[in-house]
Amino acid sequence: MIVNRKPLTFWEKLYLPAIVGGFKVTLRHAFRSLFGGKTVTMEYPEQKWAVPADYRGAPYLVRDQNDDTKCVSCQLCEFVCPPKAIKIIPPGPAGQLADRPNAEKMPQEFEINMLRCIFCGLCQEVCPEEAIFLQKDYSLTGRSREEMIYDKRKLLALGGAYGGVQKWKHKLEEAKEQENFPVKV
């Protein structure tokens, strides 16, 4: 497109209207931000964004409605994790049993290195037990690299309970129903 540039009038060539206009605009904005308190700055640590519902923040482990660990130490997330941030130590044959019924085992140790994690959400997607979720935390801080490796206890504490999907509860109910189902031979 060809923009038709009109030659400036004498008045415009003096730059005066533009100068006065500039003074007016800047003064208006300065007064507004000084005395009206109308600034666009969000003063971060005091004010924070409302994090959207589907935000992918830090991944944490969650507990079920009975406050039991959901993770069964299947290590799918460990295998799928692109930056290899997750490290799971399974309980082993003689290890501790799961603290909830319907599960054989739970991890002896579960570590996520938050310095490596890229918040991709593959662990959440792959988890058959829905035990790990990307939550809303985005500002993770620590004083050392060791501190940024979150262990199982910390992940569970940060993750909280998640009552939304109660897979094993439904399975249990189903099983009970099947037992009671009158089987006619």
């Binding site: 904005h29 300065a30 507004r32 931000s33 700055t41 003063e43």
Partner: peptide, 13 residues
Amino acid sequence: KISAWIQDRVGPN
């Protein structure tokens, strides 16, 4: 500070 006020910001604080 003045640039901040003119641009509706807060400036060093």
